[in-house]
Each structure stands twice: as structure tokens, then as C-alpha cells.
Amino acid sequence: MKLIDYLKDRIIEILMYLLLMTFVIVVLKIFDVNIFLIVYIPIFITIAAIIVLFHDYFRKSYFYNELISNLEILDKKFLIQEMIKKPDFLDGKILYEIIHESNKSMLENVNSYRYTQEEFREYIEMWVHEIKTPISSSKLIVENNKNDVTSNIDEELDKIDNYIEQVLYYSRSDNVEKDYTIKEIILEQVVNNVILKNKKDFIYKNILLDIKDLNINVNSDSKWLEYIINQIVTNSIKYSKQENAMVRIYATKNKENVQLFIEDNGIGIDKKDLSRVWNKSFTGENGRKKYNSTGMGLYLCKKLIEKLGHSIDIDSKLDKGTIIKITFPIGSFNKI
């Protein structure tokens, strides 16, 4: 609050005062009062008026300037209410009450959205578990009646199951609460589960599998990690070439971290697409060409990996292959 702005705001009062003073001087003159009084009465009154004006200016400017500077440093502007001291002048008090009330109502509003979202998330969790029962029984029926038709259906059931897992992890990835459990796990076990899940693709598409050096412990959530690695391995299978396809999985233990590499000799990713593969809904050249791609897989991988406190990197050469690296830091940070 600048003084000049304040004075401009008070312009009517100031003009009225000057008018009144002129009037008083004129009246005193008419009645031919002692010259001493004609000079000093207006001076005293003016001094008093200036004191009143400045007192008002300083307490208001103190309040508003503090408010504005607080607002500027705040990251979340709506928290300003927490930082106001209740002012001692009327219009400030009114403003204070208004901010207070509107903040309360906004909080209620936000809470109701949060509640709705949380309810929806719980519903999704429940729904995912419910739908697994009919999928399980369908898979059992297929197993008990094995032929070409049912085997075909079985493949589709696996796809449905994958999409359902995606919904589950998508809803988990956005959750503010921590619903994973970090403990010491062996990479080999997680990788083996993923391989088992995809064994038919490896065997029937004749993709060479090379796994080694995986007997290393890392701190992670085995279920989440399994989901993430499965995404990457299914990508390697999906974008493999017809001839001499290969997937290589190995890990290295370094001083500060453990790194897991998943390497393939598939069709690779164009350089211009590479930096955007982690973006939501990004499908790129490969996705457009012939493969059905949702652009969700890698986006979710990155999100989940970051939640777990690991990191993920990609490198790829078109027509040569892709290599994905997951880094697990070692240290107190990642321990439970």
C-alpha cells in the first residue's frame, strides 16, 4: 500500500477538509478575530488531522503490506488465511471474516471431492477383486476343456486380466496414501514370476531368453515391481522381430545402487520419440504403425517406480533394440 495511493483514496475527505479550513479562516476573518488565533487554530487542527490520517495509513499499510508479502511467498495461496493476524480496524475485520468463511467453505468442498475420489478408488479396488473370480473360473473351465477354441479364449482372458491389472495400478499410482510395502526381495524371484507369466509367448514365438546374475537383493515391493517388469517384458515381446528375437535380463551390484537391465533386439524406438515414451497417452511411431498401444504402460511404470523411490531409464536404437534400466538405490533411505 503506497502513501500516494492511500491519499488518492482519501481525496474527498482531504478536499472537504481544505474547504472547511478555508471556510473557518474566512469566518474568523469576518469576525475580525485576533490574527494570532487566525494563524494558530488552522495550524493545530491541520496537525491533528494529519496525525489522524497517518495513524490510519500506517496501521492499514502495515496489515495489507504484510498480507501481500505473505501471499507472495506462499506456494499454496489458499493457505493465506492461516497467516493473517486479526486486524484492529473495521474494514480489515470484515475482510478477515470473509476470508475465514470462504476458506472454510472451500475446505468443505475440497473434502467432499476427496471423499468422492477415495470412495471411487475403493470401489475400483473392490471391483478388480470381484472380476478376478469370473476370470479365474473361466480359466479353469478352459483348462478342463482344452481345445483350439478354448486355448484361443484363454489368450484373450490373459489380455483381459492384464487390462484389469492396469486399472488397479493406475488407481494406486494416484493414491496419496502409501499402499505398498518395501522389504528385501530377491530380483530373481520377481523376474522368474514375470517370465512364467509370459512363458507361452517366449516358447511359441521362439524368443531366446537370457537371464543371469539376478541373485541380488533389493528393497522394493515385490508385487509392484513384478507389475512394472511385466510391462517392460511384454513390450519387448510385443515389439520383437520375427527372426532371432532375444530378451536379456541381468543385474549389476554397484557401490551405491543395484541396476536391473532388460534388453531386447526388437524394432527399437525412433530418437524423436524416445524422450516422450514416459508421457501419458503417448504412443509414438511404433504405436501408430501396427501395434495396438494405449500409451499407458510406460507412463504407469515411471509413476510407480518413482513412488517406490527407484528410477528408470531407457535407451533405444531404431531397428536395433531397446534397453531399460531400473536403478535401486542402496542405503538407509530405502530401508524400512
Binding site: V128, H129, E130, K132, T133, I135, S136, K139, L140, E143, L157, D161, D179, Y180, T181, K183, L196, D221, S222, K223, W224
Partner: peptide, 29 residues
């Protein structure tokens, strides 16, 4: 079970189950 979180698995092992397998499972497994 169809619940597939780490917590569910830990809990199952803690109360004395010998193994834990999630739906939908491969019958061969």
C-alpha cells in the same frame, strides 16, 4: 485369493499358511 498386495501375502505367511497364490492363477503353477 484375488487380493494381490504384499501385505496380504505377508499376512498369510504370518498366520501359518504354507503358500499363497493369487487369482487368476495358472493351474499348472
Amino acid at each position: 485369493t484375488s487380493r494381490n498386495s504384499e501385505i496380504d501375502e505377508l499376512m498369510s505367511m504370518n498366520i501359518g499358511a504354507d503358500d499363497f497364490i493369487t487369482k487368476p492363477y495358472s493351474v499348472q503353477i
